[in-house]
Design a protein around this nucleic acid. Structure first.
Lengths: 213, 213, 213, 213
DNA sequence: GATGAATGAGATTTCATTCAT
DNA sequence: GATGAATGAAATCTCATTCAT
């Protein structure tokens, strides 16, 4: 009896609710990625989301739960990296280039993701759940496949430690975004942000392929 | 201090004062490196230092100032890395190995330093002063020299971007310590912490020398 | 309500309205009797009533008013106790037994009433209106009559303080329900709830007979 | 080294701390007994204790813990009732009179205790720990002994249910204090509070004697 | 130099109540 | 008549900092 709802009013409310949740999550992502769990203030999140503080608790329980939700929703974004068009015919060289490039560009376009990962790493993964690993694993499996293909083809040295290599690729990409300020002091300052990024990516791919010698 | 009351009591007090400051700084380093500026609690620092909270304010002014002091005292540690015994006769290969190994072992032995840098990076260097760069630059100049020597000798390819390479070496070493937990899940778990570190270092040096192909 | 739209829709609406009010009142009785005015939550009442919170305000004004309404509707229940079939021919002994038994069983069957009275007593009767006394007085007048009849017949001692006796009977019955948990620890635990109740009632009647005769 | 404390400053501080704790506990007893756990406000307790709210959390953890502490400290008061001068030579009659009178007067002098018990009963003994039972048991054991002595002497009927009797005595005494307002309306209003109490106590003792003998 | 008690400002969280539909 | 989202006020709780000794 009371399950019957006004057909036309409910969607509007649900819509508003959904929109509010999205607004909160977006604001929380902004603030948490910028200041970390401890540095963030619920008040600021509410203000940024242009919503009453109370709704945050209504929708997400408490600060920590909200943070976990922010992590979850952001970590899931990395999923799209794994949807890269891996092409068996193209050969390992081209596929590695593509994979690394994809990951690098994903990081470039998701600064908040990079920062959230950073806070989590320092917090010793207190809140990061298994989701990250699931998603990441899919991506890594792909690279894994590519590398194995390369080994079989004799292009890649057979004694390569794949786990180490994956970590290294991660490191080479990540550092550009985590230590961006540091880097800008070192690098030539006469070039644009895009050029700098391209240069870094080329260096990484080159480094991965050849090392320095 | 101005009115010396007893010749033999003054040194004792100064001694105690100095010891207290050291204890506070040590405790603050522990807590700040573990939890960051926002996550740290003055109470916990005081408790860890086994000293009255009031003394922290007496010696260091306030929380932020204490944090800056912790940064300063820890950043200065990186200095010893640059004291590596760079040997012109040994050849670039051996020198690079030594330099990378030195840096890697420095990070291994100074987890707190690594973490403090990490918090600072995420906090966009709010408090980090120029000290770090000075010291680091000295270290990097040395590697720079080594690399240039290698290029001249024809061992290293002449078009190498040295700034990028330095950043890459940094990344390859750092990630092991910043993303340690993540890594432990990926890597073989049957080996000890030391073995894992040795393996990583070998991989890095190998990677730096050869790349993967 | 003022503008009747459809002849046959109005009764349905009124019906629903009435049913909603009843549901709210029932839920409110549950929650208020369980947790008291301060411990109760409007949200919980709404949820229990399976109705929108807003309706509570629509029908009852506010939390306090709802509480008063709960009190009123529950206190009126005590009325039925006074409807005991007092039989002049049966003699005081039988009538007292009946009166006490009636009251005891009324309490047994109306735990919520007992608890609401309890909260009200502790809240110093903040909201309890005179209704309770009116009803109770009627009941007590009856017992009064029974006792006086007993005195006249010489069965009950003539110097009995009737007001005190009424309070004592009340106490002997009430405590079983208000301090139920305490009692269960003291009493033999091998018997059922019903047996325990019967035993208590017998004790009370025995106690009263010997006490007053 | 830092265990050494200024001999003359420490006692003063400890004194102040102890005094503060006592003040908080006293204020909390006032407020909790008056309004119950849910009705009480930490702010009001702090204000009543003339202390900063923060200290309440410092000394007692949180609201609930403070409440439990209030319960504990008040329940322990009932202990002194059991220290009544029970005299084997005096005979059961005199001893029962003394025991009941002691309990009644204890309740008379400890309204807060009575009310705290009341809130706890309604809260289904959520927070009351075993302490009450321990203390109470001691008191009840004494009455138990008295009653058994009376049974052996043939003064008290041998089939008396002692647990029930104890509960009844409790009820007869308690109701006077819990339903005080109700009672005042019923009883003759021409007499003083003390006279009314004396009258009630006499009635109880009379009621008990006749009820059990 | 050192201590423990105390504080005010501000953080998180809760709750009765109202708004828009 | 009914709904779910939204709110402001106030509650609990925390924390850097200061006071009195």
């Amino acid at each position: 009896m009371r399950i019957i709802k006004k057909k036309n009013s409910v969607p509007t409310d649900q819509c508003r609710a959904e929109e509010s949740k999205v607004r909160i999550l977006k604001a929380a992502t902004d603030i948490f990625s910028e200041k970390g769990l401890d540095g963030a203030r619920i008040d600021e999140i509410a203000e940024t989301a242009e919503i009453n503080k109370r709704m945050i608790y209504h929708y997400f329980g408490n600060k920590e739960d909200l943070y976990v939700e922010v992590l979850r929703s952001n970590l899931s974004k990395v999923g799209y990296v794994s949807s890269l068009d891996f092409d068996a015919a193209a050969g390992p060289r081209e596929n590695i280039r593509k994979a690394v490039s994809n990951y690098f560009h994903f990081l470039a376009g998701n600064e908040q993701f990079v920062r959230l990962i950073g806070w989590e790493a320092l917090n010793r993964g207190r809140y990061k759940d298994t989701l990250l690993y699931e998603v990441r694993n899919r991506y890594e499996e792909q690279i894994n496949d590519i590398l194995r293909a390369g080994i079989e083809e004799g292009l890649i040295k057979p004694d390569l430690d794949i786990a180490q290599t994956l970590l290294s690729i991660d490191a080479l990409c990540l550092i550009y975004f985590t230590h961006n300020e540091t880097f800008r002091r070192i690098a030539d300052c006469g070039i644009s942000q895009e050029e700098m990024m391209d240069k870094r990516l080329e260096h990484i791919i080159d480094f991965v392929f050849n090392g320095i010698m």
